[in-house]
Design a protein around this nucleic acid. Sequence first.
DNA 1: TATGGTTGTCTATATCAATAGACATTTAGA
DNA 2: TCTAAATGTCTATTGATATAGACAACCATA
Lengths: 244, 244
Amino acid sequence: MAGQRIQRQTGVALWRQIADRIRMSINHGDFDESGMVPPETTLALQFGVNRHTIRSALAALAQEGIVRAVQGRGTLIERKERLSFPISKRTRFSQGIGDQVRETRSVLLATSDEAASAEVARHLKIKTGTPLVRLETLGQADHRPVSRATSWFPADRFGNIAEIYRATGSITKAFRELGVPDYVRVITEITATHADESDLADLQLSPGAIVLITQALNTDLDNVPVQYSISRFAADRVRFTIEN
Amino acid sequence: MAGQRIQRQTGVALWRQIADRIRMSINHGDFDESGMVPPETTLALQFGVNRHTIRSALAALAQEGIVRAVQGRGTLIERKERLSFPISKRTRFSQGIGDQVRETRSVLLATSDEAASAEVARHLKIKTGTPLVRLETLGQADHRPVSRATSWFPADRFGNIAEIYRATGSITKAFRELGVPDYVRVITEITATHADESDLADLQLSPGAIVLITQALNTDLDNVPVQYSISRFAADRVRFTIEN
DNA sequence: TATGGTTGTCTATATCAATAGACATTTAGA
DNA sequence: TCTAAATGTCTATTGATATAGACAACCATA
């Protein structure tokens, strides 16, 4: 069960720790039979805190839209899920999670032309200062934001990729129109950190949430880098799957 | 730079958010030239908080052994690193990070014989209740704990793997002695969460830290599952790298 | 319709988190 | 040896966090 193991005087408020625990339990399916979170008094006993502290935690989860309290009945689970994201040579956003949700969508948040920084240039194997197109995109599953990504493309080959992406909502299709029939993921790096302000806004997270960060390089079939991207996923909504 | 973007009234104390930020900056190499963290007054200005709040953050980092304050001089960086962990068909703990540290070591924390739970049985493709050997291990790099893992092995083939592992400190060698010359990683799942009490103890983390969790299945060369394991990595010490 | 179980609201109190200011102590360098 | 810059320590105040207790409001059901 969920109980025990919360820590005091750590700089992380008890109600937040407990909210995180309950969210995990919900996602894990611990309360699937009843469809409800245990009563506040029960949780207070389990976690060894005052009922008011439990109420703070549940209020935070209600704010996220995960639970809904009904006076006299209990606290109902509104939503739970953790999408499984396959990472492989053929990693694409919508592919692979298509059978887990009804609808996937990609939205263009912003775009700009810029010169390659040292870091991006290193990954794309080009010279620093080379013209690039930068895309900020948001990935949604069933209208729920899942990831936000910053991608860089060499401007000489993909100068107008933003327009095509805006029209089609698909990197794959945009590549195809620009003469790249197929592309492969050659490397992915994964780290994790706390969500920053932009994450909170774009991914509709609650403060203190965790984001999984992937840095990925895609190349065309001639092994020429075509896209370098940094994506930030809401950690409580996804799970990465690496198949070899 | 590190500044901005800390949030108030989120259930996560400012000093903890700032400590996490500074730790990240250190690991990212932002202060490599001087080998020191900026002065407290500078940080207070950058983060827009009181100097005392910065001092709380630095005190937490000092407690972790990451920085050391010297009166009159400044706050020195004692240690930083984020090991890069390759994940591939041939994923092993010590291999791949060998060139990043002087010494890697694996320690057996506990072992037990137990019957397969439904979940473990499903992964190992055996019947629920089948006898298993469970190993709790701790992975260290340069005497610093990096990951803790729970692994299950079918008892019929690997009944005494614990002894051999204890003697050799290597799963690979244990497998070899037990008639498995080679094995491959067929699937890895990655999630992230906050560290629990055991993580804090075993991995010597500070409360509120993040752990990356991998669930992995290894098979022998005949595609028969030989090991299912759940590992928990200190997120601020590692980075996963998936190469295709 | 009466009752037990549940969430909602209120008051009061103690501790932690954060700010503010002042001054001491130590170091490095002019 | 003096000074500037840095960390160390102290007091005081405010707001957030957590506990404690009491009771109201609501729901399902016997």
